[in-house]
Amino acid sequence: MITTETRDGAHILTMDDGKVNALNKEKLDALVAALAECANDQAPVAIRGRKGIFSAGFDLKGFAAGPEVATAQLQAGKDAILAILRHPAPVITVCEGHAYPMGAFLMLAADKAIGTEGEFVTGMNESAIGMALPIYPMILGAERLTPRGKKAVATSEMFAPHAACKVGYFDKVVAPDEVESALKSELVHMKGLNAGAFNANKSAMNKQLIADIEASPLPDFGGAWAA
């Protein structure tokens, strides 16, 4: 599911399950483990998905498997967001397709998010599918999205790439044939940063956000919940 490549002093993590990258506990735990391994040398990290779809979001089969599995899956999503927010080196996400929740959450957590042009959408569509988000992506969205992006959470508005950039899911959007050069450019910039200063500044900026996410409760599955 996750392959790790070290290239020119940076780590490239690629999520590819051969399908739509629906994220269950096992896949999210694997992402957290890969990030932990990459932290050893403080090199920048890029997280990529499949061409056409970064992720279809949480695996709905996990939510249908009962409260214990569902809770574990949501906790794994929370852990993945926290792992990115805490990561001592820069984390870049590269989205070459659709990014539904939980994929959209990873975009918001990253230090830099690159999207690509195309017939793709990004956002949180829980209201449209009859579910409610857990608290932690609400906290993340409140911190990283624009006012329009925040309002769209309740209305399940999904955004085309350039619109997704305007509301905060991406930091830049490039043509599909420019993805590799854009990623290379970002990695060169990130590698040029002072590692200690970056970690100190990122930690300080994310301190309250991390604390708020850590303290947020998970749903009890007695009512509506997230997908």
Rank of each mutant, 00 (worst) to 15 (best):
M1Q: 03
T3N: 06
T4C: 13
T4S: 14
T6A: 11
R7T: 09
D8F: 14
D8K: 14
H11S: 10
D17W: 03
G18Y: 01
N21S: 10
E26H: 10
L31R: 10
A33E: 12
L35R: 05
C38M: 02
N40D: 07
D41C: 03
D41F: 04
A43P: 03
P44R: 04
P44I: 01
V45T: 14
R48I: 00
R48M: 14
G49C: 05
R50G: 00
R50I: 04
G52Y: 03
S55L: 09
F63I: 09
P67I: 01
P67R: 10
E68H: 08
T71D: 06
T71M: 07
L74K: 08
G77F: 11
G77N: 08
L82F: 06
A89C: 03
P90E: 12
T93E: 01
T93S: 13
E96A: 14
E96V: 00
A99G: 12
Y100K: 12
Y100R: 12
G103A: 09
L106W: 02
D111E: 06
T116Q: 13
T122G: 03
G123H: 11
I129M: 07
M131E: 08
A132N: 13
P134A: 13
Y136S: 11
M138I: 14
I139T: 11
L140F: 11
G141W: 00
E143D: 08
G149R: 01
A154S: 14
A154R: 12
A154C: 05
T155S: 15
S156R: 08
S156P: 04
F159G: 01
F159D: 05
A160T: 05
P161C: 05
P161E: 03
P161W: 02
K166R: 13
G168H: 01
F170L: 13
P176G: 08
D177Q: 14
S181W: 00
L183C: 06
L183A: 02
L183H: 07
H189I: 03
G192V: 07
G192D: 08
G192K: 02
N194Q: 13
F198C: 09
Q208E: 15
I210T: 07
D212A: 12
A215Y: 08
A215S: 15
S216R: 10
P217L: 12
P219S: 14
G222P: 09
G223Y: 06
